[in-house]
Design a protein around this nucleic acid. Structure first.
Length: 408
DNA sequence: ATACGCGCAAAAACCACAAGAGTTT
DNA sequence: GAAAACTCTTGTGGTTTTTGCGCGT
């Protein structure tokens, strides 16, 4: 996928590709200061931009975590990485799976990175919380919370988080047979609705669409539980949005008045549930009593998701704002250590991606292996074959009377 | 430097039907 | 509320086809 990777440029053991700080010329740069047009390491950035009020106002952005040579332009939520435009294009144009990754434009780092937390409000009511002590920081760093953040801030954080989760575009459990039995049609529907005129409210989904489902970091799950502290049961059984989610309700209704909020919720949980299996087919309602904390969300290869998840081509950069309705999830402000950890985790995750096929039903597998084929394709059973099969089944039944259980 | 063809590898598509899941009675 | 009957959807594997990439000319 990445030519740079193939060339070995991202060898974890070496940092030869990383740009060095324009100030000290020794450390690896971590931020790019637009005002100074300079790449700076954490230390120099702290020193320079803490020197004066004016300097502290310089807009800076993180350096791309992939190439480490250009200012990050987008935050990929699926990869949990800040990427420059070039790397973003490379990585996310590589395949349909990558194209589905949900990216948001990188916002400039406000104030000083290492000072007290600063809360910034942007249009649409989304919050950005700058600065962190590292304590209570989100593992993946999308949301940085300090321990001493007040309840209001946390609530707003929850709201953003909830919106991010809940506004996913649910793959429509379409009862229309014509659509379901035709993958191509489904794909067309999914892609086409991006700019299709008639599906007006769907575009909102696209903004927050299922890229989050690929967050198979354990952190993500833990985070959800930790923040909401709502028993899973309450989500699942009656589809009643927890009291705590009153804000969520308003958010959902804001975007999709005709959609049931429980639908979003079930979808969300369904995604997680399916992640532990194949990622295929999202349950229309989650009747399974699944405990999120017990789910191994990292088991299923991402590739499995590629088949049914809603997908959309990456919108033009200029359209991002148009199509990403509020709330926009703002990249957090991280300490250099957090950032380094993120980079390592990002690379590790890329390295460890699994694409093995997961068998959910051994019985189906066994049956498929015994079925007649024509050029590899399943073929209709002839009457004779059916008869033989019947006899075989009968034989098995007879055998079972002797205690031999057919095992699939 | 660019265009083209070739070989290889990986991914996608195709098929039928039992099993599973959901809905209705 | 539980059970049965019914309908609809999903998952399964071997082969072929398609797609993408690297390489040489």
């Amino acid at each position: 996928m990445l030519k740079k990777e193939k060339s070995g440029g991202f060898d974890e053991s070496s940092n030869n590709w990383a740009r060095v700080c324009d100030s000290c010329h020794s450390a690896t740069c971590t931020v790019y200061c637009r005002a100074d047009s300079a790449y700076l390491c954490a230390g120099c950035d702290s020193r320079i931009h803490a020197a004066s009020l004016m300097a502290s106002r310089h807009e800076r952005v993180w350096v791309c975590e992939a190439c480490e040579r250009a200012p990050a332009a987008f935050l990929c939520k699926a990869d949990a990485a800040s990427l420059c435009a070039s790397c973003d294009a490379d990585i996310h144009s590589a395949n349909p799976l990558a194209r589905r990754h949900h990216r948001v434009p990188i916002m400039p780092i406000p104030g000083t990175l290492y000072g007290p937390p600063a809360v910034h409000t942007i249009s649409g009511g989304s919050m950005m919380i700058g600065g962190t002590t590292g304590e209570g920081t989100e593992d993946d760093g999308f949301l940085s919370l300090t321990q001493d953040a007040d309840d209001t801030t946390i609530d707003e954080e929850d709201e953003n988080e909830a919106a991010s989760w809940l506004l996913l575009n649910p793959p429509v459990k379409n009862n229309n047979k014509n659509n379901i039995n035709n993958n191509n049609n489904n794909q067309n529907n999914n892609y086409g609705m991006l700019f299709g005129g008639e599906v007006v409210d769907d575009y909102l989904d696209l903004a927050e669409y299922g890229g989050d489902s690929q967050f198979n970091d354990q952190y993500r799950v833990n985070h959800q539980q930790q923040h909401y502290s709502v028993p899973q049961k309450s989500y699942v059984e009656d589809s009643v949005v927890p009291v705590q989610n009153g804000q969520r309700k308003s958010l959902i209704l804001y975007h999709q008045p005709q959609q049931q909020q429980s639908h979003h919720l079930n979808f969300q949980l369904g995604m997680e549930y399916d992640n532990s299996n194949t990622g295929y087919g999202y349950p229309a309602s989650l009747s399974h009593s699944v405990s999120i904390s017990s789910m191994d969300v990292s088991v299923v290869p991402e590739s499995a998701l590629s088949e049914t998840s809603n997908s959309h081509p990456r919108p033009q950069k200029g359209t991002i704002d148009l199509f990403s309705g509020p709330p926009i999830q703002i990249p957090p402000q991280l300490t250099p250590m957090d950032r380094e950890a993120r980079v390592l985790r990002y690379r590790e995750k890329k390295k460890n991606r699994k694409f093995e096929k997961t068998i959910r039903y051994a019985s189906r597998k066994a049956y498929a292996e015994t079925r007649p084929r024509i050029k590899g394709r399943f073929a209709k059973r002839t009457d004779v074959e059916a008869e033989v099969d019947q006899m075989f089944s009968t034989q098995l039944m007879t055998d079972s009377s002797y205690g031999i259980v057919p095992s699939f």
